[in-house]
Every structure is written in C-alpha cells, then in structure tokens.
Design a protein around this nucleic acid. Structure first.
Lengths: 343, 343
DNA sequence: GCTTGTCGTGAAAGCGCTTTCGTGTCAGGC
DNA sequence: GCCTGACACGAAAGCGCTTTCACGACAAGC
C-alpha cells in the first residue's frame, strides 16, 4: 500500500507564498468575485509558481461531492473463444464515449467500472466514490437496482420498460415492428423466418423478441427462435450448427449486427448467398453495418443520444430536480442490401 | 452547486451502533487482522444494518491516494462530417476497455478524460484527482508530457520512441517493414504504390511512414504520399478526390483499417475492383478487418496487451518501483484478401 | 510476586480543502 | 464628528476517514 502521491503542494503553501490566508486562496480557486483584484493576482501567481493543483479528495470531502459519475457495464470475457480474435468494440463503447462527452459538458468526469452480472457489492462500493451511477443493460437485476436507486442517484440505460428506476432506452418495439413489417409485408413477403435471439434476461433482447412475436402472430407467420450469446464471435459457430440440423429459412432476423455478421459468415460457409438465398438483418446499426458484405439491413438505435440523455437526467437529479420518468428515444429502420429489397 | 450527496452513513454511526470506536471500524473495513473475532462480527453487522459505504473522498484524503487511474485520450469531434454516420469505435475503445480491466485487477478504477490536443490545463487538473495518468497518442506534445511526467506518475501510450516519459508502444517499424516487404517483394512485386498517411504529429503515424520510406527507398520504389485525417469517414471523400486527379496506383497502403475501408469504398465508386484492380492494405487489425469485403490485409497491433502493460507499468511505479524503460510489443502481419495475394 | 512482552482497543491528530462567522476598514449619510 | 453598512478578508470548524501512540489487560517468565 505504498500508493502515495508525491509531496503535493497544498493550499497552505500557496497562502503563505502569496501572503494571504487559505480562505482567500480557496476563493480564488473557486472564482469567488469577493476577492480584490490585486489579491487575486498575487494568489494566481503563487499558484502557478508552485504548480499547485487542488486535491480532489479534500475538495470532495469538504463539498460532499466528487464531481464523478460512475458508468457501470457488464464485463464480457472477450478472450474466451479464440485468442487470436481481436477485441470487439461496439454499442457499449459508443455509449461510453458519448457518456463521457456529455458528463464533461456538465462538469463531471466518468469513472468506468466493469462488473459481473449481479455483483451488487461492487456497485454498492462505487456509491462511495461517485455522485451518481449509470448502469448499462442487465448489470443488476431489477430488484437490486431499485434497492440501489432508492438511496442513490442512478439511471438504468437500456433498462426494462416500466422499471421503478429511471430508465433511458430506445423504442425497441417500434424498431422491431418496422423491420418485421418490412420483411413480412414488403416485396418478399417472407413466411419462413428464423429469429436469432439473445438471452431472455436482457431487457432489450426480451423486448425485441416480444415485438417480433406480436407482429408475426398477427400475420400467422411462425418464427423459429434460435438462441445464441449475442456479440460472441461464437455466433457463427452456433448458427452453423443449427443450419446443418434444420431446414434453411428465407430470412434470418438477428438480435444485433454482430450476430448478423457471424450469421452471414456461417451461411457463406454452407455455400449460401446473402441475400439471394437467405436474407439477413441485424440490429443497432453499428458503424460497420454499412461496410460489411452485404451491407446490413438493420434498426438504428440512437446510442449516442441515449447516453447523453442518461447523463443529463442524472445531472438534473444531482442538481436537485426531481427524478425523471422513463426516457424513450425513437429507433429507425435502415434498409440496405442484406435483406434483398434493394439492389 | 447543489450536487450534494444524500446524508450518508458515516463511520461514526457504525462505531456507535456496534459499541466500538471508529478506529476499530476502520480496521475491520480494511481487513486488519488485529481485531478480535467477536468484535469484527459486531462491526460487520452494524455496517450491513446501516448500509454503510466508506467515503472515497475521506479515504483518499487520509491515504493520500484515490485508487483511481486517469485515462486521457483525444476527443475527436465525430459528428463533424455526416450526422447520420453512426459512431466509430475502434482502437481507442479497445485500449480503454483493456485498461479498465487491468486497472481493476490491480485494485484501481479508471477515470476517463477526453481532451483537445495540447490541453495541458485539463490534464494538469486531473492530476489532483487520480494517482496516475495514462495518456493516449498525442494528447500533449512531448515537452508538456515530460514536464508532467517529471512530477506525476504517467505513461505514454503509443508514444514516440525515445521519449523521456515511459512509453508503451507496438513495434510499428517491424510491422510496416513486414507489410512493405510482402507487397514489394511478394508475389505481386508492386512498384506503383500510394501510401495514405496520417498527420505527421502522431507518433505512430510518423513511425509507420518512416519505416515505409526506408523499405521503399532500399528497393528504389517511389511511394506517393496522400495525407488524410485518419479515422474520419471523410477518408473516402479525400481518396476519391485524389483518385480523380492522379493515375491509379497498383496498391494503396493505408494508415489504418478505417481509412482502408473508406478507400475501398472510394475505389468501388470509381468502378475499380479490390484487389483485382487495386490492392489495399490497412493497419491495426481491428475486429471488422476480417469481415469487410474484401477482408483486409493489415498489421495487427496488440492493443489489449499494450493497454494492460501500460497500466501495470503505472501501478508498479505507484507501488514504489522505479520507472520502467520503454515497453515495445511486437506487431504481426495478417495477410487476407485485400492485397490480392490469397484467393 | 514482580517484571516483561504481547495483544486488542480507543483517543486524537492529521489529511487538504470549503464555508460560516466575525472582525477590521473605509465610504457615505446625518 | 459619529454611526451605519458594505466590503474583504482571516480564524476556525468541520468533512469522514487512517494511523500513530498510549494504555489496560492478561500471559509468560523468573
């Protein structure tokens, strides 16, 4: 435990050097106008000569606020499958960057914390180091989350509709509906469809699946459900197995773009062309979706906006405004080549 | 400034409730074995009954250490070009996630901070809130960085070889060499080559360019240099302009994978096939490199390992070990279809 | 029986800021 | 000339922890 900081310059030394009191130095640091001009200048000079930087810890202790927001996400075990697989940044990273950006605009910093699902202890501990918490996806179950949010400012990103905690999410339902209607009612009128779904426990995935089932049921189309771990490059393998065992569908609706890419790979390896033989769709519209072959038909989620809204909601709450209700942002169907509807 | 935390439970209340002193409570929190078993249990019970979470600020102040590492990166202005462009996660995000992971393993958290190039003030201010700093790419110029590193634990990620500050970087030189030799000496023996380079100010880019020039000079091959902003989706546009104005080369060596993808798009729009008409190569081997059409020949950087090493080096330094020398990790040529050497 | 040493605990002094409160100074009003 | 009020500033009291130091209890050694 020798994690000591250097011998820092403190406010006392600045006070001594500038011939004033620490109160005055503190006022200067914080831009209090009630300091005479000449005094202010003397203090500022001393600060820069000594290279003084105020201690965040001391300030935090005194103000009872750290100026830090926590960003809590599920720590995926990447390397799992194939060690030569490069990492796989996506949706989560975009949210992270956007959240940091918005936090900075509001005068906060963002502290990252990856946790295993259900690791309430780690999240609770974070509570002592940040002013507010933004929890991604299914970091905690809903009960634990409510327990937390009751005593601490928190928002749930991509959470379940109807949760007690403030939720910021995209309109999965409308997105899936638009996609499904395009596929079932559009030029192709697909009737033989497979949906690759993610774990039921993930709110977004559950919402997508529910919406899909509603649309298909209304049209009397039966949808075969295949379950895979989303985002794992193992998707290709899992899909290959199912393809070998079952009749090939006309279209495969994937839970997200990564899985869609894996699916395309698996189809190709079986000698099937996309979209000529099988149509494929993704979800999220990650950046690569337009660059892969074929470019993916998908549903765009406004991840950047969502993250910004989540942060703003949190900041409002910290500024004393009352808690927001759920925030729902629209999704948008993006038709590209993989569904076979455009040349 | 009403960013107040709730009325937190403090160590005093735990002490009172458990019938001991705050010293004992502190010892229990920190796992000091010199507390009798029965006492420890009483304290733990009080802690959980009250929902006590120690204040990071108070602890930080007392210990003179925050347990936080800062991750400083260049804040790119994404939205710039086309608002409908989804975000573009990549190299930086992978580094971020890996750094967080490794930091957590060492008992630290990671604080994100995006800054504009040369924004020394922001970086300096960070110094008051974290125990150590990891600076990506060209956040500060070398002089400012040395000034900082002199008084504060810092490592420079992807920095310039030979810098005074501890640098963690990949062996750009060897990677470029392997790639260039493959292209110039391999099956195709290209002689008409264009290199799309990034800004000279970025160490990694400068290193790549230098290495390329050495290899080509040794073979008497002249390389035309085209400069673009790396990572911007504007690459396609910039390349299109050059293609219209100059003779089409046999191969285009791109400064990174994103630019390579943009370049492929630009070539296609001119009706040129890749790699049949023009070969294209990338750099980094981001995850998508293998999924785009055609899969990219590129040079893999061990970003995850680099980030982990950077964090470990920082932690060693914080633990009192002396400063590390430069850490250089190998790169690896990955030959895929875009260079036309494999079917 | 006394001394010595070990063990477990509590008192109290910080850590480096912010902020309240009180005081001295000076301008303006009578 | 004195009183009042505004204005700048400093003293000092926290903020909630960690850690040193001293002390009491008790076991072991002679």
């Amino acid at each position: 435990m020798s994690r000591r900081q250097q011998d820092r310059v403190t406010i006392y030394e600045v006070a001594k050097r500038s011939g004033s009191s620490i109160s005055t130095v503190s006022r200067v640091i914080n831009g209090d106008p009630a300091v005479r001009q000449d005094n202010r200048e003397r203090v500022l000079r001393a600060i820069s000569e000594l290279g003084f930087v105020p201690s965040g810890a001391a300030r935090g202790l005194s103000r009872r606020s750290t100026g830090i927001l926590g960003f809590v996400f599920l720590r995926e075990e990447y390397h799992a499958t194939r060690p030569e697989d490069p990492e796989w940044p996506g949706y989560l990273d975009v949210a992270m960057r956007a959240a940091e950006r918005e936090a900075e605009r509001s005068g906060y910093s963002l502290l990252l914390s990856g946790v295993r699902p259900g690791d309430e202890a780690t999240v609770t501990a974070l509570t002592g180091r940040v002013d507010g918490l933004m929890l991604m996806d299914e970091v905690l179950d809903e009960e634990a989350l409510d327990r937390l949010a009751e005593r601490f400012p928190a928002v749930w990103f991509a959470g379940r509709a109807g949760a007690r905690t403030t939720v910021v999410r995209a309109d999965q339902d409308a997105g899936v509906r638009a996609l499904a209607e395009h596929l079932l009612d559009g030029p192709h009128r697909f009737t033989d469809v497979v949906a690759i779904v993610g774990p039921e426990a993930v709110s977004d995935h559950a919402a997508r699946r529910r919406a899909l089932e509603q649309v298909s049921a209304a049209r009397d189309v039966r949808v075969r459900l295949w379950t895979v771990e989303p985002g794992s490059s193992g998707a290709a393998g899992a899909v290959a197995t199912r393809l070998a065992a079952e009749p090939t569908p006309e279209v495969i609706i994937c839970v997200n773009d990564e899985v869609a890419i894996g699916t395309v790979t698996a189809l190709r390896e079986r000698g099937l062309r996309v979209p000529a033989d099988v149509a494929v769709t993704g979800f999220d519209d990650v950046w690569i979706a337009r660059y892969v072959d074929p470019p993916l038909t998908t549903v765009r989620q406004p991840v950047t906006d969502l993250a910004a809204q989540a942060v703003r909601s949190l900041v409002r709450r910290l500024d004393g405004d009352s808690t927001d209700g759920p925030i729902v942002l629209p999704t948008q169907l993006v038709v590209r080549r993989s569904c076979g509807c455009v040349p």
